[in-house]
Design a protein around this nucleic acid. Structure first.
Lengths: 349, 349
DNA sequence: GCGCACATCGTAAACGTTTACAGGAAGATG
DNA sequence: CATCTTCCTGTAAACGTTTACGATGTGCGC
């Protein structure tokens, strides 16, 4: 693992100056003979350009950071899967940060833009605080936010339309005859939590259903937490006949708890998830889920950022991705009640 | 987004030399008064160290690359989830490459180590070719391979024990009375494919069951492909009573096809997956699956690499992670046949 | 008052590139 | 043949750090 060759090594071997080597390597006009010599030397030495030195001089790292709240969440994963190829095709590397949705970590990432190790950042914060906005305004590199930011914030941003998404789901449940529709939400101090909670309320009102706080339970965006929240809601309102869950993980938790409680899905309680992740199609029963277009949002974010890197001072843009409802068995399943869990699942006959 | 301050700016403002600024920022012994002045200036200017310049000088980027075959595969994702926090805790950033299991892309990644934009690489190649080995030998930065490499290859490597894993599964099926155990594999020119195929054969022999090529079908490591392979196998051997699938996605495909064919799982056909991903627990019925310890392997790989970065010329190490069998409903479920899929399952609005 | 040890600092080189600039050679033009 | 272009090349500076080295100043012992 000896020290690799540099353009100086090549220059010596080819008998030219380092400037010529650089020009040849960058395809600038050069005499044919020189090109040949330099190429030959580079080939023999197995030369590879030093990206760090190059970045220092050119002030471009060809790296873009993606700060995701939670690697475990398939919705962010769907974004990542789209972001990666778009960046790769444009010649950028992807630096991955996981912030665990901790504000301090997100601020850290924004702050670290000052280190200039990336040309730009795609970030998907769960909540947007005053500090976020301050840091965004002072950010030393272009940032694209996936999620909602206050009106007028001068930053490119890609948002889902969870309002319409929740509306789609609630209407679907209403159309199936459900009238006691509960909501299991994540923390309402998060952007998605707040939006989904409000949208649920609106959707009910639009349909002329009463909004009842007893039908709303706040947990967190994880399976176990979601399950706990559902259990609490069930104790309070055993008559609930449908559950709008703020994401698929919560919905899976709901399925767990409903099964354990002997409630049939969808006959007794219909369940709708959100994000339409892989888990929704694979779950038991398969989960009706609102797709908020995570994949499309990821792609759009990457494209926005690339565009901004080309064209630094265009107006900030906002892209909104429309939701879709993927209807599956957890709302329209026609088979008889799912039976108690198979013995091995949790030790029951 | 004006040009940020550099140590030169600070030096001017504090009335000291850039050397002093650097010393203060790096905590080298300096007079108290100087420290104060420099810190004050840095603070006022909102100075952040330029990581690129720092890397150029120090020959350390504090970045580590992870080249995963397929972002969509939850097994790799499980590795990623473990790798990320380990690196972060050690002060390294994570650069993510997705190679789509294309050899040329993997070679590219190895080659790009010469650009010195990372201090090391964790790679999980699906197949290891001659070129891989050549590039590994010539790699300009430490590499840890997740997966098997030929005996004696001088490289840190973390492997699963799929042989024992398959054995666990086949014995489990045998113990449940299954005697016509099929295998649905991915391409056998991949390392896991070859290993799992061979292990299946060995496990049968160990149990005194005949090895029958008709019971083996090769597809690819994806859900749809797995389904197709199972369909083919079923046509050839309708009497099969158990399926050993080379990963969970294949097993999900198997469930799809078995359901469509009216076969009950596990009564008619027991199904075992591999990798024990989130999907296994969420699927319908839940999937018995061999965990090859993806998470542990990711963690081990990250730790091996960090250790190697500290101690460049210790002996190459090999870590083998033991498999576990997660038993679920697809082999031991006792409920009556799952019914045909609900109508809505694949009709989307 | 001299010499020495020590602490602190500034100068300058280095990391590996890219690139502005100027110089030289060759060809075109008078 | 002198001059002007044109093309190609080399010199050197720059990007923002870290760090070896030598210079300076201070305090102390004699």
């Amino acid at each position: 693992m000896a020290d690799g060759p540099t353009i100086t090594t090549i220059a010596e071997r080819a008998g030219v100056s380092i400037a010529s080597v650089s020009r040849v390597l960058n395809g600038l006009p050069t005499r044919q003979e020189t090109v040949r010599k330099v190429m030959a030397a580079a080939e023999e030495l197995g030369y590879v350009r030093n990206a760090v030195a190059r970045s220092l001089k050119s002030r471009r790292t060809h790296q873009i950071a993606f700060a995701m709240a939670d690697i475990g969440n398939p919705a962010y994963l769907a974004m990542l899967r789209q972001i990666q190829p778009v960046l790769k095709a444009a010649g950028y590397r992807l630096v991955l940060h996981s912030t665990d949705a901790v504000v301090a970590d997100e601020i850290d990432v924004l702050h670290s833009l000052g280190e200039r190790y990336v040309d730009g950042l795609i970030m998907s914060p769960l909540r947007v605080t005053r500090r976020h906005l301050d840091m965004l305004a002072a950010a030393r590199a272009p940032v694209v936010i996936i999620g909602s930011v206050p009106e007028g914030t001068p930053v490119d941003n890609v948002r889902a339309d969870s309002r319409t998404g929740v509306q789609l789901a609630v209407r679907h449940l209403y159309g199936l005859g459900r009238r006691t529709i509960g909501m299991v939400n994540g923390p309402t101090d998060t952007v998605p939590g707040a939006a989904r909670g409000a949208a649920y309320r609106e959707a009910l009102e639009e349909l002329g259903l009463p909004y009842d706080e007893d039908l709303v339970e706040i947990g967190d965006f994880y399976r176990a937490e979601g399950g706990r929240a559902v259990a609490a809601l069930l104790r309070r309102r055993p008559d609930v006949d449908a559950l709008m869950c703020a994401n698929d993980l919560i919905a899976l938790g709901a399925l767990d708890v409903l099964r354990a409680a002997g409630r049939r899905v969808p006959q007794d309680v219909a369940v709708v998830g959100m994000d339409d992740t892989d888990l929704a199609a694979a779950s038991w029963p398969s989960l009706t889920s609102v797709s908020l277009g995570s994949a499309e949002r990821g792609k759009a974010a990457a494209e926005l950022l690339l565009d901004r890197l080309k064209n630094g001072d265009r107006e900030p843009r906002r892209v909104t991705v429309p939701p879709r409802l993927a209807v599956r068995a957890s709302t329209t399943g026609e088979e008889p009640a799912p039976l108690p869990p198979p013995g091995a699942e949790r030790g029951r006959p």
